[in-house]
């Protein structure tokens, strides 16, 4: 049992898992680049993990295997992190360089929490991509919520959403091209505000992101009869978002502090 504990906490084990993870992600790059699996990855981006498995037209078996394998390897890395933290870092804290070891422990724990938050964002809340709404139209969300587009101003798309062939050096005014949205809760308006490009409307955990404008007929660059464009929105709710956004800088600060504390020392083989 002691030998198993030592193995699970060992750096050799960490390196082995990291190498498997690298292989797994390199495989993921190949899969994502292939046309056969592009649709699958698009689905993974547009809805949360439970739907990948529950939908009849969900992910292919290979993508399911890839994702489950990725989660499995990450889980093993988590086990290694827990064992390593307890049996090595805490032990070393009693020795010299205790302060830098403590910072290292904090960095590792926070890394684990950030990774957990990442996983949580795949399964918790909801995500609706490509919600097309005209002025006055409403989209119903779970838990008694709905989102309404109250007004659309302008309707030009910034160059970043155009294909490279269509990109020009023209200026784009983000303040003049946006939509006003309202969040409805149980039939009553709970909040309202503008959704700009790169400046979404946020109410509690719910975020309404303006992705682009489209012509009423659904064609990207056409405003056929002068009528108002359609707003293409992404509506998402991620309850663990704040955890990740707060802990990530804590991890960065920890690494920065560790770097400063150990800059003059040579810890590599001491």
């Amino acid at each position: 049992m002691k030998r198993l504990n030592e193995y699970l906490a060992s750096m050799q084990f960490t390196i082995g898992i990291l190498l498997i993870l690298m292989f797994w992600l390199a495989w993921g790059i190949l899969l994502a680049e292939s046309t056969a699996f592009r649709e699958g990855f698009n689905l993974m981006n547009s809805v949360l993990a439970p739907e990948w498995f529950s939908r009849p037209e969900g992910l292919s078996s290979l993508l399911k295997f890839w994702f489950v394998g990725l989660c499995g390897v990450m889980a093993v890395l988590g086990i290694n992190l827990i064992f390593c933290s307890w049996t090595k870092i805490l032990k070393l804290m009693r020795n010299r360089q205790a302060a830098s070891r403590l910072v290292m422990l904090i960095i590792h724990v926070v890394f684990g929490l950030v990774a957990l938050g990442h996983f949580g964002s795949f399964v918790l809340g909801y995500r609706y991509e490509n919600v097309h709404l005209k002025e006055g139209q409403t989209f119903t969300l779970p838990e008694g919520h709905a989102v309404t587009v109250k007004a659309i101003h302008g309707g030009e798309n910034p160059v970043m959403f155009q294909s490279p062939r269509d990109q020009t050096a023209g200026t784009f005014d983000p303040e003049a091209n946006y939509c006003e949205v309202a969040l409805i809760y149980n039939g009553a308006e709970a909040a309202q505000g503008p959704a700009f490009f790169l400046k979404p409307f946020v109410y509690k955990d719910i975020q309404v992101t303006l992705k682009r404008f489209m012509s009423p007929k659904g064609k990207k660059h056409e405003k056929a009869d002068g009528s108002k464009p359609v707003a293409r929105l992404i509506v998402s709710r991620n309850p663990v978002k704040r955890v990740v956004f707060v802990l990530f800088p804590v991890m960065l600060a920890g690494i920065g502090l560790y770097l400063v504390m150990t800059w003059r020392t040579r810890p590599a083989d001491k």
Binding site: S10, M11, Q12, T14, I15, L18, L19, L21, M22, L25, A26, G28, I29, A32, E33, F41, M44, N45, H118, S121, F122, R127, E129, F197, L198, K199, P200, Q207, T209, K211, I234, V235, S236, N238, K241, V244, F245
Partner: peptide, 30 residues
């Protein structure tokens, strides 16, 4: 802020993670 989520399943994100893993391997060699 641009796409309503902080992670996307695409090669650019995998490449970034691969680089982070490479750093991690460099710092964890026993």
């Amino acid at each position: 802020n641009g796409w309503g989520d902080f992670w996307h399943w695409n090669p650019a994100f995998f490449q970034s993670t691969l680089i982070i893993l490479c750093f991690m391997v460099a710092f964890h060699i026993p």
